[in-house]
């Protein structure tokens, strides 16, 4: 018997092990749901699987009687648009700010402490300011996500720029690189993989801010819907939405990881 630290599961058993916690959770839910429903058929806390099927049908297939829209896709579209626009803006700020702060000592002195302080402000605390200043529309929601995510990305990317070996930068200068070429041909290309890593890590908080903003002021969106139906304790809607959000977040994370391996193969650790 080898030591536990040297015990590697085979591919098949790794898959089975990975699936195990999910299966346990599902089993626990089914068991709990059945037990509660047996006691009280009107129980709303743990709906039966059949209730989810009905909900999915009325939300994702049929049009809403009042608005004529298919709510599930209306909400998904609205939320994803906000999230993707906010992430794109954050990524742009992150790479531009990170490059400037990481590459130029003057910019580091100028903006380093400021960005560090900015990153410490709890974004939800300034949500009222955003709503007051930018109104209750899309801009304020996107601004909240950007505010919560971009400073962290800037810091992370600039840290990476600072980690590049001095030897590399000196070498590039002996090859005749100007500051501009050093930034664009040597430093920037080495920051992209870190930008993707930073985006993956901040994806969770981006969703948090999205749902928070939608919960407070919105007329559609995944977070809005969850908080709307909470009033009726509609667990049959909330749970599928939560699973759907998780699935979307997981897919985005997976796509980012895939893009990193595809476009920056040199940065993969082997």
């Amino acid at each position: 018997m080898p030591r536990l630290v040297n015990l590697y599961p085979s591919r098949g058993s790794a898959l089975a092990l990975g699936a195990l916690p999910f299966l346990i959770l599902i089993a626990a839910y089914l068991f709990g749901s059945a037990a509660r429903l047996a006691e009280n058929p009107d129980d709303k806390l743990l709906p039966a699987p059949s209730a989810f099927v009905d909900t999915l049908k009325s939300y994702a297939v049929e049009e809403d009687r009042r608005s004529g829209e298919v709510l599930w896709w209306l909400d998904t579209g609205a939320s994803m648009k906000r999230l993707l626009v906010a992430l794109a803006i954050s990524a742009f700020i992150g790479i531009a700010g990170g490059l400037a702060i990481g590459a130029l000592p003057v910019m580091r002195s100028l903006f380093g402490p400021f960005v560090a302080a900015l990153a410490m402000i709890p974004p939800l605390a300034i949500l009222p300011i955003l709503f007051i200043a930018l109104g209750l529309g899309e801009v304020a929601k996107i601004a909240l996500i950007v505010f919560g995510v971009a400073p962290c990305i800037v810091r992370d990317v600039s840290l990476r720029a600072g980690e590049l070996p001095k030897e590399q930068l000196i070498k590039a200068q002996t090859l005749g690189a100007s500051s501009w070429l050093l930034a664009t041909r040597v430093i920037l290309p080495q920051l992209w993989p870190r930008l993707i890593d930073a985006l993956r890590l901040t994806l969770g908080s981006a969703w948090l801010f999205l749902i928070a903003a939608e919960a407070i002021a919105s007329t559609e969106g995944l977070g809005y819907r969850i908080f709307l139906v909470r009033r009726y304790m509609a667990m049959d809607v909330i749970l599928p939405y939560v699973i759907w959000i998780t699935l979307l977040a997981y897919t985005m994370d997976w796509l980012l990881r895939l893009a990193r391996a595809r476009f920056f193969p040199w940065a993969e650790t082997r």
């Binding site: 070996p165 030897e167 590039a172 200068q173 002996t174 090859l175 005749g176 040199w266």
Partner: peptide, 20 residues
């Protein structure tokens, strides 16, 4: 007072560009 193309350098390590 700065490195320039008239003086080349080879360090013991880290002087290649990993992304190229």
């Amino acid at each position: 007072a700065e490195p320039g193309p008239d003086r080349g350098i080879v360090f013991q390590r880290y002087s290649l560009f990993p992304h190229l």
